[in-house]
Design a protein around this nucleic acid. Sequence first.
DNA 1: CATGAATGAGGGTTCATTCAT
DNA 2: AATGAATGAACCCTCATTCAT
Lengths: 192, 192, 192, 192
Amino acid sequence: MDLVEKRRIEIIHAAMKVFSNNGFERSKMETIAAEAGIGKGTIYGYFSSKKELFEEMICYNIDKYKDELIKIVASQQSFSKKLAMLFSYHANFIEKNLDILQVTNNSKLLSCSMKNRIIEEQKSFFELIEKMVNIGISNGEIKDNIDGEVAVLCILGAINQLAGKRIFIDKVSADNIDAAPLVDIIMEGLKN
Amino acid sequence: MDLVEKRRIEIIHAAMKVFSNNGFERSKMETIAAEAGIGKGTIYGYFSSKKELFEEMICYNIDKYKDELIKIVASQQSFSKKLAMLFSYHANFIEKNLDILQVTNNSKLLSCSMKNRIIEEQKSFFELIEKMVNIGISNGEIKDNIDGEVAVLCILGAINQLAGKRIFIDKVSADNIDAAPLVDIIMEGLKN
Amino acid sequence: MDLVEKRRIEIIHAAMKVFSNNGFERSKMETIAAEAGIGKGTIYGYFSSKKELFEEMICYNIDKYKDELIKIVASQQSFSKKLAMLFSYHANFIEKNLDILQVTNNSKLLSCSMKNRIIEEQKSFFELIEKMVNIGISNGEIKDNIDGEVAVLCILGAINQLAGKRIFIDKVSADNIDAAPLVDIIMEGLKN
Amino acid sequence: MDLVEKRRIEIIHAAMKVFSNNGFERSKMETIAAEAGIGKGTIYGYFSSKKELFEEMICYNIDKYKDELIKIVASQQSFSKKLAMLFSYHANFIEKNLDILQVTNNSKLLSCSMKNRIIEEQKSFFELIEKMVNIGISNGEIKDNIDGEVAVLCILGAINQLAGKRIFIDKVSADNIDAAPLVDIIMEGLKN
DNA sequence: CATGAATGAGGGTTCATTCAT
DNA sequence: AATGAATGAACCCTCATTCAT
């Protein structure tokens, strides 16, 4: 890897830590620089502004997330198993990185092209999960009269809510969360 | 209602509009004042600071949300029906107010006591929904071997994700969202 | 006069002092504010940026200068007398305000429209003086085979150079400079 | 010439181009280095600071200007011819270098010793031109009741104003400016 | 009580200068 | 000797808060 690229990644990692702790506005370039162990001005050799750094950080996270998502969807596993894997991955991701499903909240400060890019990326997340659902349907694991899109939103919503609660409120580490009850509810439903 | 209290509510409503459009930091007191049709300095006669206004606005929303939640839980309806009502209410709420499940994201700027208060309130939300689940169990509508807490998180996560997608991405108005597929998936699960 | 306009003029006067002492870049908004006896932020209630303040200050000077210039040109005096008046006015002006003939030096930092505006204004200065020359020609005071434009440039150049030398190098006050030798040279030439 | 001295001159020439285009503050060391085709840090091997480079550049220009000025004054030509030569040289100089008569405007950022040095140098310019005038007087070309100093200032002011107008406003190249009308006015005056 | 002009602390960004390579 | 990545002081501008009217 390029030395410049290496340094960009270091700064992005520092930015992830600071931005996800404080949000965009309350994060100071100085704090990010300190976190990266460099001087304030150095960041501007790699990113033209705070906003660009923020956007690049989001892209970096989206890309990272998507790479693994594709692997999970493509893996030769039962749907239930994939669900558990997805939960585990998502929980680990939001624990160490940032809540990928909630970046749109900060969309007010993103450039218009970034906003659109992020919406497109989120759509492609949804499509990947929907593909996972469709594989499950063709396997006969999942009912074929399901509304695929709603299923995706239920899955992601449930996963995100449980992971967020366990990690940020209950202070449980991502690896110690039991995904089984969630998988069970999503698969079997609540009805008696 | 007190005249002072009336004015406080007017300011809070203006603040809701502005804060939910722009987030805390990018909202200016001047904008909120203009939205409320009053002078900038006047706000300080009713709230000691921007932060206090923000916190009071959150409390106001939480209270409003909880009042209705209690009614839904207590209503003499089937669990499925209550689920649909909850969805409808939640969608309308986040459309006009703010995303009550995501305020914890902004918790970095809340005072410590507020942070705890909000966490307590969220817990009481969860308990209310859990109560709804338990009523369903005793009614025989819902399986009795369900992990109640996880069920609550799945329900709220699914509802929030669907409502958010429909309202903020698909630009559908809250009243025009079909809750049936969501209710169906939560009740029946995905399994074939 | 409007209170807002009054305050704008006060700030412009402070800006004139500071900008002409230090140039645009080395002048701090804080210094200008201090000179005006107000807070730094107050300036931004009247001017949107340092650059706008600078541009408005230049316009203000140009307008002020031109008003008097018109009076001198229109006055019922001999050309020689007008020349002396012009010198006296110019010397007083650059002593108390700024060197109106040299603002184009700072043109790199002016907005394009301002740059054009200033060039137009300078042209109109030149035209006013040329009119003065033409009146002299029709009066029979001045030769009719003179290149009017070059005459104007000689007059202004000579006036500005003498005034600048006397005021900024010799530290003579504007009112104590003897304009007679200059008038004599311009009128009679050097030739034996 | 020393290799070090050669490199210093190269840097000074780059600095002249950049400083005269942008002024002192808006000129970046990086731009000057790029113009000189060297690295930013290299400049500091030859000049201790931006300010020193600026001062050295001014000295270099003054010396260059003075050398030629001396030749013109000493040349065996009529005063009128010398005037035309002086105009031509001055126009070429400010076109390619910097306005030698206006550096005092930037005197705020010069060191005190430099400021004094420049004032001394300007005085010696004036004395050289005054010498030229005096030669003209002893030749009988020029009236003997002229105020020599004022004559010098008129000459230089007129020359500078005309050259500046033609080059920077009318965008005429220095070699294509007709000096005859200026010489005529200075020699013959305006009077009918 | 209501106002909005005034304030100044705070933070993003630039760029002269340094120094390890 | 030459380089350019790194640094941090300096400065413009914003906006929460105050207070005279």
